[in-house]
């Protein structure tokens, strides 16, 4: 079931630049969806529209069936978000910041706040003014505020931006924990391909405000069978593969058709007098996919 639906979003900035061009996708319950794209591709604009901070020219976002554009208050009851940089009131403590923010949701439960503070590993630092926080601590506080009060969906806008490797790993584990143990649905906006690959089930790739891909993250794909063929007889190999219904690109990446087993294809190549030097499983990465889409004009 789709918990968040992005429908035909189009947005043109007053400068005339087209930020989004008929973008639509959905985030299903319990999944982690990655929103990928170059700087200015429209990722944050989608986040802004989802939170009702940016108005689309056309289209709408629905959360749990409620339109953000028509009933923002009710729709946002189900969402927790880190939108753009994690900025807090530096002259207040972490705890006071959470209190101010939670009051805007009409909610305060001290026991639950303490539990979330423990979960994000802020501990006693929550009593300190946020001016004293490191970037990692700010991100953890940002996650804490997003998790209060118990949202169904988390929107994370570049959540690991500026974190050190340990911080990124800790953050990633926390996100995966939230999905596994709390059934959280998450939409993650990032330009870090590795991050998306490790965390997300599916991804949407944007380019210049247009959706150019929506589907499973390549590393999560189970049905595709892709191999790397090393041969000196490229032309001959291509002929044999064509006859078998397989395809091979210029780098020797072969996609085995669904009606064949990989070993049958190798047998066909050998029987066709192709000298097979090596034949090994090739894992297509998100980077391959992303760069492939980026290079297309």
């Amino acid at each position: 079931m789709a918990l968040l639906e992005v429908r035909h979003l189009t947005k043109r900035w007053p400068t005339g630049r087209l930020a989004l061009d008929d973008v639509g996708f959905e985030v299903r319950e319990g999944e982690i969806l990655g929103l990928l794209g170059h700087n200015g591709a429209g990722k944050s604009t989608i986040m802004g529209i989802t939170l009702g901070m940016v108005r689309p020219d056309i289209g709408e976002v629905r959360i749990g069936g409620r339109s953000v554009q028509q009933n923002r208050g009710a729709a946002l009851q189900q969402i927790g978000a880190i939108y753009e940089a994690a900025v807090f009131y530096d002259y207040l403590s972490g705890w006071q910041n959470l209190r101010v923010l939670c009051s805007l949701s009409g909610w305060w439960d001290e026991a639950e706040v303490k539990r979330v503070v423990q979960m994000v590993n802020l501990g006693r630092a929550i009593e300190q003014k946020t001016a004293t926080y490191s970037h990692g601590m700010r991100q953890r506080l940002a996650l804490a505020q997003a998790l209060l009060p118990q949202p169904k969906i988390l929107l994370l806008d570049e959540p690991t931006d500026g974190l050190d490797p340990e911080g990124i790993r800790e953050f990633r584990e926390l996100i995966l924990h939230l999905r596994k143990h709390h059934g959280m649905t998450i939409m993650l906006n990032s330009h870090l391909l590795g991050e998306v690959e490790q965390m997300c089930d599916r991804c949407v790739i944007l380019k210049d405000g247009k959706k150019v891909f929506e589907g499973p993250v390549p590393s999560q794909e189970k049905s595709r069978r892709i191999f790397q063929l090393d041969t000196n007889d490229i032309g001959l190999a291509r002929e044999v593969l064509d006859r078998c219904g397989a395809t091979m690109d210029k780098h020797g990446i072969v996609e085995v058709p669904l009606n064949m087993e990989p070993h049958e294809l190798v047998t066909a190549l050998v029987n066709g007098k192709v000298q097979v030097n090596t034949w090994q499983a090739h894992r297509r990465t998100l980077e391959d996919l992303y760069m492939g889409l980026s290079s297309k004009s």
């Binding site: 939170l51 969402i79 939108y83 900025v87 923010l101 805007l104 949701s105």
Partner: peptide, 10 residues
């Protein structure tokens, strides 16, 4: 950027 933090709330 505080306004964005506040208006991420309902």
């Amino acid at each position: 950027g505080h306004m964005r933090l506040l208006l991420a709330r309902p």
